[in-house]
Simulated scan of single mutants.
Amino acid sequence: MTDFAALPLSPALRPGLDALGYTAATPIQAQSLPPILEGRDLLAQAPTGSGKTAAFGLGLLQRLDPGQSRCQALVLCPTRELADQVGRQLRRLATGIPNLKLSVLTGGVALEPQIASLQAHDPQVVVGTPGRVQELARKRVLHLGVVRTLVLDEADRMLDMGFEEPVREIANRCHGQRQTLLFSATFPDAIRELARQLLRNPVEVSVDGGESAPDIEQRFFDVDPQFRQKAVAGLLLRHRPESAVVFCNTRKDVDEVAGSLRQFGFSALALHGDMEQRDRDEVLLQLANRSCNVLVASDVAARGLDVEDLAAVVNYELPTDVDAYRHRIGRTGRAGRRG
């Protein structure tokens, strides 16, 4: 099964599929959508860029009751950037569902407007980061008692960031007979234990490599540390990618490398976790519309950064683990393109 037309999807979801140009399912969608649509819990291993958002998005939208103005679906993401990206895609998939209210609730932005919005009208779908969702639920303005679908997106990253306790508390606030969908790039012991406690007899699927593997050419350059900034500039000048992300391990390096590249004539901007959310949004907008052609970032951008046709990724230094490397380079070579 690789065709969306073969799935028992609601007619209300067809406009969203058409708007996104989706006809054939990716491997993770083909494996996970049938059990999701049957209402089964799911434990899924999928690499970045494999199409998992559409898989769980179609599933949670299918289960919505548009006439019920309570939160029925909750997607937890590790970062603000990923939550924003997931929220945008779910809104497009929901094009054919009238009067749907979807709220993206993350930290790094003012709490009061989020409270006011929730008090005015409960959203039917919430996409958020664990800390902010936990805070709003504790304040009794976000009501999770009737949540029918709980999605844990990039669950391994959430645990790495210390969100295990908020995730467990949030899950306990959701309906006891909910459907739980857990997506993770890796299955360490902590993820297995979390799944054992939160999921009921889950279907397990795995898409790792094979036909879904991104087409990314990788090159390694051995450079003396004192010449590293010049080497990055030289490589970008030599290969001239239309857009590139340079990943650094520290905020200090992010600022220094961005400044160095500007001296070499690049329109380079910095992105790291200590920036205000509006400044981060502005940087991502400039990269997306090509008014900035090089983004220098810490790992805060390694997940959830989705720039149309990003040409190249540069690791200023190697990250500390293989998974972080995989997620960094996964910003390029997406949706069947080369990187």
Rank of each mutant, 00 (worst) to 15 (best):
T2A: 12
D18T: 13
G21A: 11
T23G: 11
A24S: 14
I28Q: 14
A30I: 07
L33M: 04
L42N: 05
A44R: 03
T53D: 12
A55G: 04
Q72E: 15
L74K: 09
L82K: 10
Q85C: 12
R88T: 09
P98H: 06
T106I: 09
G107Y: 05
A110N: 07
L111M: 09
I115V: 14
S117N: 11
P123I: 07
G131T: 08
Q134F: 15
L136H: 10
V141N: 11
L142W: 10
V146A: 15
V146Q: 14
D153Q: 01
D156E: 03
R157F: 03
M161Q: 04
A171H: 15
H175L: 14
A195M: 05
A195V: 03
R196N: 14
L198Q: 15
N201Y: 12
V205Q: 12
S206I: 06
G209R: 13
G209F: 12
G209M: 12
E217G: 13
Q218M: 06
Q229M: 13
H239T: 11
P241A: 08
D255H: 01
G259E: 06
R262I: 00
L269E: 07
H272M: 06
R280E: 03
R280G: 00
A288W: 10
S291E: 14
Y325A: 00
H327I: 00
I329M: 02
R334W: 12
